[in-house]
């Protein structure tokens, strides 16, 4: 047991010049939350389980935007249970954009890779080891989870939702030719420096933000790998896709079409 563990001492391996395979990689998960009191303990539990089963060095950074439901209180309890080296609380006063949440989280991240995902249990942490394998396999800058390829899919969507999703995806593929099949998904692995550069460039909000990240990545010649994921729509809480979302998606799509 001890001999296996000893390979993971980060201090000595950091210094190696080759850096790629031997250096101890560390993965920082950024979890932006707003009213996720129910889901947060569960997603953290699943993350810890997935990481420790595959022997991955990790930390979880919870960025709570002043949720009124007491998400922060639950997060503090989790910090006590799992230790403050694994669970880092970096709350903010009020609800701010997703982009700034990533910037805020990255300021405190000590990993050389960043995983972003939703805290609402629609993204299962069991895919993260697959992301990591994929990243190493092609030395990718970004690995994106995709619902639209291979064994990927969704749960809990009715026909209307599927048509909107597939239709929006088709139009986007035709107009932007982005080189990735799932543009609006937000379950991805980035090299830290790549995410830093991308976040600076991206100005959109909501669904379009994730799309802009991929489009800009392609523009800046970053490489993108894809892993099929199953997306289980919100178990607790309301899923949101209304007319407003569709209109702002189309606006964002056309803006990217005209500017990139």
């Amino acid at each position: 047991m001890a001999s296996v563990e000893s390979r993971r001492s980060p201090a000595s391996s950091r210094q190696e010049p080759e850096g790629r395979s031997r250096r101890q990689d560390k993965y920082s998960v950024l979890l932006p939350t707003y009213n996720e009191r129910e889901n947060l303990p569960l997603i953290v539990w699943l993350l810890v389980k997935s990481f420790s089963e595959s022997g991955i060095n990790y930390e979880i950074i919870i960025i709570d935007d002043g949720s009124p439901d007491g998400t922060k209180d639950v997060a503090e309890q989790l910090e006590k249970i799992y230790g403050s080296d694994k669970i880092l609380l970096r709350p903010r006063e009020k609800k701010l954009g997703l982009g700034t949440a990533y910037i805020h989280g990255m300021e405190h991240a000590t990993g050389n890779y960043i995983v972003i995902m939703d805290a609402d249990l629609s993204h299962h942490p069991k895919f993260i080891p697959e992301f990591i394998r994929k990243q190493k396999e092609g030395n990718f800058d970004i690995v994106s989870g995709t619902r639209y390829k291979g064994n990927g899919g969704v749960y809990g969507w009715d026909l209307k939702r599927k048509i909107i999703s597939r239709g929006a995806n088709f139009i986007t593929q035709v107009l932007l030719r982005p080189g990735a099949s799932d543009l609006t998904g937000s379950f991805r692995l980035y090299r830290k420096e790549v995410l830093q550069k991308l976040v600076e460039k991206c100005v959109s909000k909501g669904y379009v933000f994730q799309m802009e990240m991929i489009v800009r990545a392609r523009q800046m010649n970053y490489t993108i790998g894809e892993v099929p994921i199953s997306f289980v729509d919100r178990v607790y809480g309301e899923s949101k896709l209304g007319g407003n979302e569709i209109v702002s998606f189309l606006k964002g799509l056309l803006t990217l079409f005209a500017t990139t």
């Binding site: 539990w45 699943l46 249970i81 969704v154 749960y155 969507w157 026909l159 088709f170 199953s230 289980v232």
Partner: peptide, 30 residues
């Protein structure tokens, strides 16, 4: 194309079931 892709969109029933059982496990453990 869109019609074909809607028709062949995977419904991840297994993933949802697995998640539900893991949620029970997580609640008990936590």
């Amino acid at each position: 194309t869109v019609g074909y892709r809607v028709a062949t969109f995977h419904d991840c029933e297994d993933a949802a079931r697995e998640l539900q059982s893991q949620i029970q496990e997580a609640r008990a453990d936590l």
